[in-house]
Design a protein around this nucleic acid. Structure first.
Lengths: 340, 340
DNA sequence: CTGAAAGCGCTTACAG
DNA sequence: CTGAAAGCGCTTACAG
């Protein structure tokens, strides 16, 4: 329909139409668009007026062909953990006054997307990538970082050079959990970790856990079980722990969601929380507050992590090459699940 | 660096390099890429081999300039409701054997993104849009549909022409909840609905609730409260209900998450669930299964909804113009929260 | 069945 | 400070 000539397509206004309307060149409009230097206030005002009048919106694909798309890719391991919502809030806050828009992808969904989601974000010319809870190797991350500015959240690699990392101090978080449990009178403290891809944050937490146990003179009671994120698996692991010969009197779980399942299993087994078994989670997600859970948890300031990650990736886009590793101290939020 | 000439950019292999490697034209490679008609098996095989050898990946931006980006935009209201994870699973299943990739955005985060996330997806040349839990008006949705194939999930508009809808039968879902509660011996049944933008799914559920109450001869006990999704707000509304003069003996909540908060409030008030108050949620998310919640809920088959939505949007991309409205029947999953 | 050429809407040197 | 022209990597008619 509507024979070209005026460059219409899909009803979209193009940069050429804005230029014609404002009586300036296409290049001038482009400069205004990018807040580039070398445009007079008068020209800028004229162009802005035309853009508003015509309802102009630049096409990201076209921009991406030569410059940026002003899009950041955020990769989440899954959509079930409400902790990621906190991170997302921080990311959005950081982007509020910028031209950047964030698009999310899930890494652990179908086979196709396993690592493919990052590639597909690169194919889509994302200007930068934020990877949450990655279990990729250093080399693999370096390969990504070669192509696009990269920041990881929840991946410890303090000697990485090619990409920035943003973390809470997971070792300290686990330590806080153990100390808190010890102070509350628990001694047979087990840890429930994640099975599968080796994760640096879990390695850190396991180390913090061991440290805390040894520190309290409980080195002999160290007991690390693990399960995948599949519900049935977690139930099985929890039952093994709670019905086994070395039944713990407290369990430190690697994330709130798992901790809630452990509470569920304990309840079904007729064990009382916190009297028979104390439970600690990680992330301090909103579910911890519910009276039926009242779960003690480690807060790692997800919103701050997201804010920092967005800030760092934009800095990289703007040319920073020196690496930055941001670490926030965790803090324990005590609730009834450990108040023996 | 690396003076052009061979067309390298950012280490990316271009379609031209593939063409040169295979000894064919760029147009031929493009056809193979799109599985377009009119290429011999021999040529296709040659090109495929070259693509593999060089590790070629088409640049979505460039494709988008003329044709498709093979990207679908999925808009979620927020990241806190685990129900969306079910929908996402279905979407990914539908996309498994296709070239399409899905990118997600959040609609209800910051001011900037309120409705802007859809526009920004259009700017990014998404081939189609799936909108979850939209509260936009018919005209507003029509405007989107004019620009891109659109499918909504959780938005009832059976006479819409320009876009497809995918839903469970919310009216029936609410009816099931009321009937179940009545059968369990509850009679002062309240509903806790969502305050804010008028939502067609909540309108449907409220109607189903009213219908169920009247049907059971409980028309006089109809009592609809509402709260935003903010935790404090929900707590306040729940307290008002449970401490008010017309204290209900059961509450039907518009989503599981809210129901869990209501259980929390009831527990804190010293009320027993299900003895003093029965609770029903909606979505049958995995949290319902936890022993400490054991929440009766309405299952709306999120995975199926996602699968259908993805299927429909791809059909639209491929040229279908006749509208489709897909509705799945809900089913109630009874648990302890209503077993008086 | 195959390919040369135009063009999508921008940005980027470069010249004025 | 401003603009004309080339070009990003694809797809799309069109011609052979």
């Amino acid at each position: 329909m509507a024979q070209a000539g005026e460059g219409r397509r899909n009803g979209r206004v193009t940069i050429r139409e804005v230029a014609d309307d404002a009586g300036v060149s296409v290049a001038a409009v482009s400069k205004v668009l990018r807040d580039a230097y070398g445009v007079s206030d008068a020209l800028r005002a004229k162009v802005r007026a035309s853009m508003d009048r015509l309802g102009y919106r630049p096409l990201a694909s076209a921009r991406g062909m030569r410059g940026q798309t002003y899009t950041l890719g955020l990769v989440l391991p899954d959509l079930r953990n409400p902790f990621f919502a906190d991170i997302m809030t921080g990311v959005n806050n950081a982007l509020e006054r910028t031209q950047y828009q964030v698009m999310m992808g899930i890494s652990a969904s179908t086979a196709k997307l396993e690592t493919g989601v990052v590639d597909s974000m690169i194919d889509r010319q994302m200007d930068g990538i934020i990877l949450i809870g990655s279990t990729e190797s250093r080399e693999s991350l370096n390969t990504i970082a070669e192509k696009k500015p990269l920041v990881t959240i929840g991946h410890h690699d303090p000697s990485a050079e090619a990409f920035d990392t943003v973390n809470n101090n997971d070792q300290q978080g686990a330590l806080l959990a153990v100390r808190h449990l010890v102070a509350a009178g628990y001694s047979k403290i087990a840890m429930l970790s994640l099975q599968g891809e080796p994760s640096s944050i879990l390695a850190e937490r396991e180390q913090g856990y061991r440290h805390g146990m040894v520190e309290a003179g409980l080195g002999g009671a160290i007991n690390i079980a693990s399960a995948t994120q599949v519900m049935r698996d977690v139930q099985f692991a929890a039952k093994r722990l709670l019905q086994g010969p070395r039944r713990p009197d407290a369990i430190f779980c690697w994330t709130d969601f798992i901790a809630l399942e452990v509470i569920s299993v304990a309840t079904e087994l007729g064990l009382r929380v916190p009297e028979d078994v104390g439970i600690v989670g990680y992330d301090n997600t909103m579910f911890c507050d519910f009276a039926q859970n009242s779960l003690t948890s480690i807060d790692q300031s997800g919103e701050l992590l997201g804010l920092q990650a967005a800030r760092l990736v934009i800095e990289r886009i703007n040319g920073r090459t020196a690496v930055e590793h941001f670490v926030v101290p965790p803090r324990l939020v005590a609730r009834r699940s450990t108040s023996r």
